[in-house]
Design a protein around this nucleic acid. Structure first.
Lengths: 201, 201
DNA sequence: CGCCGTAACGGAGGCTGCCTCCGGCAGTAT
DNA sequence: ATACTGCCGGAGGCAGCCTCCGTTACGGCG
């Protein structure tokens, strides 16, 4: 969650403020899950029983709100990336990373798009986190390439973009099961037959 | 039932109306090309020197406008699909179709998304055209699969979605060259090395 | 050539959503 | 008590979508 409070909270957020903050987060999470990342902020404020001004004070931009919502996931992702860098074989590690990345981007409808656009604006609230993911992919890719387990051309921007594109693709048929993994394996193995791990009997 | 219309029911559009219609189309094309498919309709009307009401009379929805703008391309696509169905080898024909489809979806920013959402709403102005593309892909895919030149699992919805996803991906880095073909070949050949046409020296 | 029916026009206005700004209230300290 | 200040809420300005309806003027007809 958030950082631990100081031993003697100079100015602990007043309890009421704290409660509003939590309510807002909860309602935002619900709304984003239901309607995607562009859900109305006024609706969220209303659902949290709070004025729109309060929402904007706590979260000056939609991205700031998103950043807090995803904070934990981002931490997880970083941890997993660190572990994968030591994992073998490198090609598998890369594949796992793609899967993890895409699954994350598929958390909310519209998130893949937001993450991509974040990479274009370094002043964005999410920029740092996004950049970190991108960088992690860079290392995993390089290692897989050295091991001859990933195409030698292929750069990390392409990789990141494709992972998000697969998340985007799986948003395109709502109501059914999550297709992200399926799309990823199509991407990873290519569209032609028999070129993959597949063992024909 | 009011006025019994003459033998010729559609009178030609009055000349001024015709001109407004053309102006609107031209400005819409320009705006969509520049700012993507969600450009402000009021701006387009203004640029065409016409009231917003006029725009809405000619094109009751944004999609109707889009449909007219894309009408010619859709015809081209159909023609090309028909030709490809007789082309050999079937795998190449399928690959060409993917390329054509994705290039089309990359015409305007946001178009890929719009085409996908169109497939979900059969009352949409673009539904028929979209469905036709989808169906054409179906045939090409089946033929390639029979020839053993495309994965046997893989359905035409996936194919259509992936083509659009590649167009989406190539929208994500504006200002640079068009990456659609690059992404398509990554998709087609897979991310691992040496499984493709690639000939190592 | 002038009249009139009606196709075509245009923009005001209602709605939704974004975001800012500021007057007011309520804990806290003196 | 009183003053301080963090916190609140929503009014209001802006932009975009779309509808509705009073007005304009085209062009066929007498």
């Amino acid at each position: 969650m958030m950082t631990a409070e100081p031993r003697v909270p100079r100015r602990p957020m007043r309890s009421h403020a704290r409660r509003n903050y939590e309510h807002l987060l909860a309602q935002a999470r619900a709304a984003f899950a239901e309607q995607g990342i562009n859900a109305s902020l006024e609706d969220i404020a209303r659902a949290a029983g709070v004025g729109i001004g309060t929402l904007y004070r706590h979260f000056p931009t939609r991205q700031a709100l998103l950043e807090v919502l995803l904070h934990d996931s981002f931490n997880d992702l970083e941890t997993q990336a660190r572990n994968l860098i030591k994992a073998d074989p490198p090609g598998e590690a890369l594949a796992s990373w793609l899967r993890i990345l895409a699954a994350h981007a598929a958390t909310y409808r519209g998130l893949a798009e937001a993450l991509m656009s974040t990479l274009r604006d370094e002043r964005s609230a999410l920029y740092a986190s996004c950049q970190a993911l991108h960088a992690a992919g860079d290392q995993l890719l390089a290692r897989a390439q050295e091991a001859g387990e990933a195409r030698a051309d292929l750069d990390s921007w392409e990789l990141f973009t494709l992972a998000n594109a697969m998340a985007w693709a799986s948003e395109q048929r709502p109501g059914t099961a999550d297709h992200t993994d399926r799309f990823l394996s199509l991407l990873y193995e290519g569209l032609r037959p028999g070129m993959s791990h597949t063992i024909s009997p």
